[in-house]
């Protein structure tokens, strides 16, 4: 049997990482965590995660930057805030998960064609252009970019929704002044 070390040597850790996370709004009291595990216990999807929420907090504090940002956990989190309202130390775990998602997107730390960042980006583009979102079009674009084969399976649901008047791919959901949105967002990016 070959023995393998599962945690990192000190020199492989990123000492600055916990401070980066704590600097985001909502990350302030990261250091108060008492590792009680309440978050993992309440989380409805922790059993699908590679690292539970409690462990993620510990890993952030330890400086395991790569492992945290590569983790599936941050994408499986559905932002339901159950952990946040139950945490005895009022740590905003959900907001921390959001910050980690943003960090992972910014530094390209996720599997290619992985649906969530693709969906997020498509969403942003659509809002930038139209000010609103057409859900049917959004999901179609997502599938084309990630799993074109799923289109066939989902087509029957799409047809049912169209029949019920709940989906119209050609309706242009658009605000009257989309340029106002563009201007607003450009202004933000300037500063």
């Amino acid at each position: 049997m070959k023995v393998q070390r599962t945690i990192k040597y000190e020199e492989e850790l990123n000492r600055n990482f916990p401070h980066e996370v704590a600097d985001y709004p909502g990350g302030e009291n990261l250091w108060d965590c008492i590792q009680c595990g309440t978050c993992s216990g309440t989380c409805p999807v922790s059993l699908y995660m590679d690292h539970t929420p409690r462990k993620i907090i510990a890993m952030i504090r330890g400086g395991f930057k790569d492992d945290v940002l590569k983790s599936f956990t941050i994408w499986i989190c559905s932002s339901c805030y159950a952990c946040t309202v139950q945490c005895p130390m009022t740590i905003k775990i959900t907001e921390i998960m959001y910050s980690l998602k943003r960090m992972a997107i910014d530094s390209g730390y996720f599997p290619k064609k992985f649906a969530i960042p693709v969906l997020a980006r498509e969403f942003v583009e659509m809002v930038k252009k139209n000010g609103r979102v057409n859900e049917g079009l959004l999901t179609t674009k997502l599938m084309l970019k990630t799993e074109p084969f799923k289109m066939l399976k989902s087509a029957s649901l799409g047809i049912k929704l169209m029949r019920a008047g709940r989906m119209n791919m050609f309706a242009s959901e658009k605000i009257r002044k989309p340029e106002e949105i563009t201007k607003l967002l450009d202004k933000l990016e300037e500063k």
Binding site: P25, S79, Y98, K101, R102, I105, I116, L119, A120, R121, F123, V124, V127, G131, R132, V133, I175, R176, K177, E180, I181, L184, L185, L188
Partner: peptide
């Protein structure tokens, strides 16, 4: 009149500031 998408969760994961700005409008 002329409301825009609130940005909700997807925006939050990409750029929080954009999401906040959309809701503020």
């Amino acid at each position: 009149d002329d409301w825009n998408c609130c940005g909700a969760t997807f925006y939050m994961s990409v750029d929080e500031m954009l999401s906040f700005t959309l809701s503020c409008r």
